[in-house]
Amino acid sequence: CGFTPAYAPGGSAYALRNQILAEAPSSTEEYAFVVQFEDRLGRTSDAAPYLLTYSITTETDGLAVTSDQETLRYNLSGEVRFTVTDRASGAVLTSGRTESFTSYSAIGTTVATRASEKSASERLMVILADQTVSQLLATAGSWQP
């Protein structure tokens, strides 16, 4: 059916693990994104051939407003734009953009809502990192020299 194992020898992403250094995070959200990216494609050192740069934007919208104006659910939507560059030549090998959302409810106590909000943000970063890795895996054949 035309599919081949990505990480098998000769597979398109065989030589992709531990090759991409993610740009250093500067916020809690970015930290979670980089941890998930490293867990999926492996950590690397400063000698890595490729660099992943990313810019993440998130937005919170209130939902489920009750008749006494209480907002009981929030949607956290997020978008990441990323590029992979060849660190030697600085050439952009591939780039992409992906978007998703997570949500959390605000019915519980203040600390419950606070914990749910933090968890929603971490889950969103996991999703965005996974979707970034999927695109890199799927298209590795065409951009990895």
Binding site: A112, A115, D130
Partner: peptide, 15 residues
């Protein structure tokens, strides 16, 4: 006190 509202999505399927 904190873990009273639970969500299930692709972000915590493997957590």
């Amino acid at each position: 006190d904190e873990s009273t509202q639970l969500e299930f999505d692709e972000g915590n399927l493997f957590s």
